[in-house]
Design a protein around this nucleic acid. Structure first.
Length: 440
RNA sequence: GUGGUCGUAGCUCAGUAGGUUAGAGCAUCUGGUUGUGGCCCAGAAGGUCGGGGGUUCAAGUCCCCUCGGCCACCCCA
């Protein structure tokens, strides 16, 4: 490591990873803040789990045939030889945590987490992306399915996104899915010549995914393929109908999509995906989820039903860009304190911040002019000036930047009170200006 | 992982058929106002032209490799 000099190559974030700087980070704050509040309203509590997990967790959870396990996982051994993996998604670790701690059911948790997949990076597709999501364990009811979906939709719509579509399907259960899969396989066997090059080779291993294939060949060859909806057992049928009925009652529109086959093996019954039509066709899924009643058992835990969803932060925000919603907020500096190096400025700044105002100042003794310019550029509402004269007289000059009013002289003792008065006045003025602008 | 495309200051981009010290706008900083923002004017700073190698008297310009972004496949958030 050390004996390989970097030469002139600058250090940068690894391929497919990125930094989130302001103002983008301000939108993250908004989305995460909104989601935390929403989660609380729906009865979910924050769960924080490690970024690294025993690699076997995902192998058993996803199934060997999944792409994520086969070729996209970041796996490595730690110094003690333990097989570890960077989490490729959010659900399996939650279920592992559940099995480990056996909390009282129902257990409803939310999270904000990075997720890692070794894929070829692209806009909206990263090797490290971030998801907000929830998981609810211990309840097997279609009413919860509908509620979870409604929560996901509300989260997306809260950003202002409108050009979205909810796709929904039922994957059946361990009673009815095997029969469907064999019916599908039988059908595919008769049409294998018409499949795309890839699935012509692999349809036997992943028959369900052929439905999800976007090539014209597979598309056409599966037009008349048996559909899961015609093979659901009565329990699954009834459950799915209830989910759809409840979504209707909640005013959530949806599109049933028999081709919606999510990538992980653990899904049962309800699966759904939220796509944005404002994004290019390739990476248009901004969120997805579903029921996974068999997962806990597959991980050697007690049989426990579960359902959840994840929303990709990056994709959500890219979609917002496309629709021009979720604008970044003002940096909003209330007070800029300009001085000529007097002692006492630090305590003034502290007092103002303590009173709840955002305060900026200069630290390197710049000229008054330069400080005023900075104050103007950061949009400070008022600036307080302390020069030789003011310092000597125990006064401060208050100049309202956002107003046309002249500057006033204020006694040092009254400054916090006066500053707050003027800041409020500026805020009202600016707010009125925004209203006027909007009504134009 | 496969194929394609692009890569010049912090940002958006110029850069003639390879030819002197690589440019502009915006942003930044300083000054014009020996204590006062926004406009204007002047100036400064900022680049090993993604990196490495090659061809050539001469490479930002041509060739190869590599890294990174983007697009498609694949997969998904």
């Amino acid at each position: 490591m050390a004996d390989e000099p970097l030469r002139s190559e600058a250090l940068r974030s690894p391929a497919g990873t990125h930094d989130v700087l302001w103002p983008e980070s301000a939108r993250w704050e908004w989305v995460v803040g909104d989601f935390a509040k929403r989660a609380s309203l729906y009865g979910y509590r924050l769960l924080v789990t490690p970024v690294i997990e025993d690699a076997r967790l995902f192998v058993r959870g996803f199934g060997e045939t999944s792409d994520v396990v086969g070729k996209e996982m970041y796996t490595f051994e730690d110094r003690g030889g333990r097989p570890l993996a960077l989490r490729p998604e959010g659900t399996a670790p939650v279920v592992r945590s559940y099995i480990q701690h056996r909390p009282v059911l129902p257990w409803k948790v939310w999270y904000l987490t990075p997720a890692f997949r070794y894929e070829r990076p692209q806009a909206g597709r990263y090797r490290q992306h971030h998801q907000i999501g929830v998981e609810a364990l211990g309840v097997d009811s279609p009413l919860l399915d509908a509620e979870v979906i409604e929560m996901a939709m509300s989260t997306v719509r809260a950003t202002g996104l409108r050009n979205t579509e909810l796709l929904i399907n039922s994957m059946g259960c361990k009673e009815c899915r095997p029969a469907y899969e064999s019916a599908l396989s039988q059908y595919l066997a008769s049409r294998q010549g018409g499949l795309c090059a890839y699935h012509h080779e692999h349809w036997k291993e992943v028959p369900l995914r052929v439905l999800d294939c976007k090539t014209e060949e597979c598309r056409g060859a599966t037009m008349d393929a048996p559909r899961i909806s015609d093979h659901l057992c009565s329990d699954c049928r009834e459950s799915f109908d209830t989910v759809l009925g409840d979504l209707d009652a909640l005013g959530i529109s949806y599109t049933t999509d028999y081709r919606l086959v999510r990538g992980f093996d653990y899904y049962t019954r309800t699966t759904f995906e939220i796509v944005s039509h404002s994004l290019d066709a390739a990476q248009n899924a901004i969120g997805g989820g579903g029921r996974y009643n068999g997962l806990a058992e597959a991980l050697s835990g007690p049989p426990t039903p579960g359902i959840g969803f994840g929303i990709g932060m990056e994709r959500l925000l890219v979609a917002c860009d496309a629709e021009g919603c979720l604008p970044v907020p003002d940096p909003s500096v209330d007070v800029y304190v300009a001085d000529l190096g007097q002692a006492g400025t630090s305590t003034l700044v502290h007092d103002l911040r303590n009173a709840g105002y955002s305060v900026e100042r200069s630290y390197e003794g710049r000229s008054l002019k330069a400080q005023l310019r900075s104050a103007g550029r950061m949009g400070a509402r008022i600036v307080l000036i302390i020069g030789q004269r003011e310092a000597a007289a125990g006064e401060v000059l208050l100049k309202p930047l956002a107003l046309d009013d002249d500057q006033v002289v204020v006694a040092r003792d009254a400054i916090v009170h006066e500053a707050s008065k003027w800041v409020e006045r500026c805020r009202r003025h600016l707010a009125a200006g925004r209203v006027a602008e909007r009504s134009r």
